[in-house]
Amino acid sequence: MKILTQNPLALSGFIIIVAVLFIAIFAPWLSPYDPNYIDIHSILLPPSVSHFMGTDGLGRDVFSRMLYGSRISLLVGIVAVGIATVIGTFLGAIAGFYRGYIDSIIMRFVDTMLSIPTFFLILAVIAFLTPSIWNIMIVIGLTSWMGVTRLVRAEFLSLRNREYILAAEAMGASDFRLISKHLLPNSLTPIIVTSVLGIASAVLTESGLSFLGLGVQAPQSSWGNILTDGKEYIQFAWWLSLFPGLAILITVLGYNLLGEGLRDLLDPKNKNQKK
């Protein structure tokens, strides 16, 4: 908490994320309309006092749909990226720390995963799973950890021979201690950056999955599918693309600011800098 009050930017990131979480949790009380209420007599209305963000192709209130959609988009972003980050960091750390055989095996596995067409993997999965948000999050998480692994491994390889690591090793620190106390905190930069950007990608991937039959199914909304729907109407209804785009942007910015604060907090290299 201290770091938040000291760093106004991290604080603002924190506030943004808390605000979005608040919206997601309290969507039913904040929404002026039922997000699935169809009114074919008021389709594609531009933003106005009664419809803050306009209406969509079936006359549903976009603002309410955005509020409800934030639940799915937030959840998908955080959980999917969480899965990817944990797997990616774990494998990357092991590969970069032990090098040699273990490194080769893990990295060849990464290469294989990268070469396999995710798209087909998802199509194959659809045949066996029913659509649910949990399946979406698991699928996105399990198919997007490879970048993290490579970056963490690279960072570890470069840190592995630094004097302070060698010194700690000479003093008899255990592998676990070396990794968790010395190497990992120094590798936070790439992890945080990938995760922050990964959240935004996950939100967009989710909308791609609904098209394939695995994602959120109609009439439920998510930022991703409001945005995709907006493409159909772009010549006429700009608001259908603008608002979800803005929401994704603000959330990603929020995560980034928060991520930076987190990095300041956890990164030992920054400590000597603080007065």
């Binding site: 699935n36 169809i38 074919i40 192709g57 079936l58 199509l123 659809i126 045949a127 659509p131 609904s210 098209f211 394939l212 039959g213 199914q217 109609a218 009439p219």
Partner: peptide, 26 residues
């Protein structure tokens, strides 16, 4: 969109409809 409209009308008479959109070849 048609499916969503049907879903709403059938709910009016007490039928619960789920919608699933799937890629063509699958």
């Amino acid at each position: 969109m048609t499916a969503v409209l049907i879903q709403r009308r059938l709910k009016d008479v007490g039928i619960d409809v789920k919608i699933r959109v799937i890629e063509w070849a699958s």
